[in-house]
Amino acid sequence: MAVPLLTTDDEGEPGPTSLVIPEGWRATQVYAAVDKALALPAGTTRKSLAKADLKLPNDAEGNPEGYLFPATYPLGEAPTPEKLLAAMVDKANEKFTGAPVAAGAQRNALNVYQAVTIASIVQAEAAGQRDMAKAARVVFNRLERGMPLQMDSTINYALGRSTLNTTAKDTRIDSPYNSYQRMGLPPTPIANPGDEAMRAAINPTPGDWLYFVTVKPGDTRFTADYAEHQRNVAEFNRVRQDAAKEDLAT
């Protein structure tokens, strides 16, 4: 992802002055970025969670995933992992506990933590902002029909990876994040969503869609018909194969 993690002061002196957390990063990526920004040994920020005293919702059970809000954070004087993580969670609470999100979650028969979880899936699955509210509707439609979500993003989260290649073996892994086998939402968010994904989660576009696939950039296809979805997936696979052949030829 071509996003600057660290910035320096105006005079070009070495050393970061702020930390940029992009939308959709997982907690593990945030921890690594904080370690790098503060020049700490790898794993230091993760270990600091126990003493960070983060103001998380009870449903989070101490896990800040979903609440490390994507934004730019000044390092300030004497920065520590605890200070940075607390600033991220405070920003998330500022965003998520206000009237618009709380009312939107209630309108959709959710609590705020569930809305953040849906937003995290939308952030991971949608090809761009314009598809987010439709992707959110697919999540709601599947939940309402008692269907498993079957989102590859949750499999990727369980396996600690990011890929478009999900195999049949992957969908059989024993994990609470396996949304092919487990019903309902995953137990926690799977990333840290931004404003647009959160808006989509509480204001999904009306529609009957149950499936979607991004065949190629700018071409995401939503449908309620499984046979049509299978055709779209076949085209997606053809596009990927053709691209791979072109890469080999160059």
Rank of each mutant, 00 (worst) to 15 (best):
Gly194Leu: 01
Lys55His: 02
Arg199Tyr: 04
Glu11Met: 12
Tyr157Gly: 03
Gln181His: 05
Gly24Ser: 05
Lys245Val: 09
Glu13Trp: 03
Ala243Glu: 13
Tyr226Leu: 14
Lys83Ser: 09
Thr163Gln: 12
Asn237Glu: 15
Met198Phe: 11
Gly98His: 11
Val139Asn: 04
Pro148Cys: 01
Thr44Gln: 00
Leu68Gln: 01
Asn108Phe: 09
Gly218His: 13
Val3Trp: 13
Ser18Arg: 04
Ser162Thr: 15
Thr117Ile: 05
Tyr157Ser: 11
Arg130Leu: 08
Thr117Gln: 03
Asp53Ser: 06
Pro22Phe: 05
Leu38Gln: 03
Ile121Leu: 12
Leu56Trp: 03
Asn111Cys: 12
Gly104Leu: 06
Trp209Tyr: 14
Lys91Thr: 12
Leu85Ser: 02
Asp152Ala: 09
Ala105Ile: 08
Pro193Met: 07
Leu185Thr: 00
Leu248Trp: 02
Arg145Lys: 15
Leu85His: 04
Glu196Arg: 12
Pro16Tyr: 01
Ala115Val: 12
Gly15Ile: 07
Ala78Met: 10
Ala227Ser: 15
Pro81Lys: 01
Ser175Asp: 03
Pro176Lys: 07
Tyr113Thr: 05
Thr7Gly: 04
Gly218Thr: 14
Thr117Gly: 09
Glu125His: 06
Arg231Met: 05
Asn93Pro: 05
Ala39Asn: 09
Ala103Thr: 12
Tyr73Ser: 06
Pro22Lys: 03
Val112Ile: 12
Thr28Ile: 08
Ala50Met: 04
Lys245Arg: 13
Thr72Ser: 15
Ala27Pro: 02
Gly207Trp: 05
Gln230Met: 13
Glu235Ala: 04
Leu164Val: 13
Ala99Glu: 15
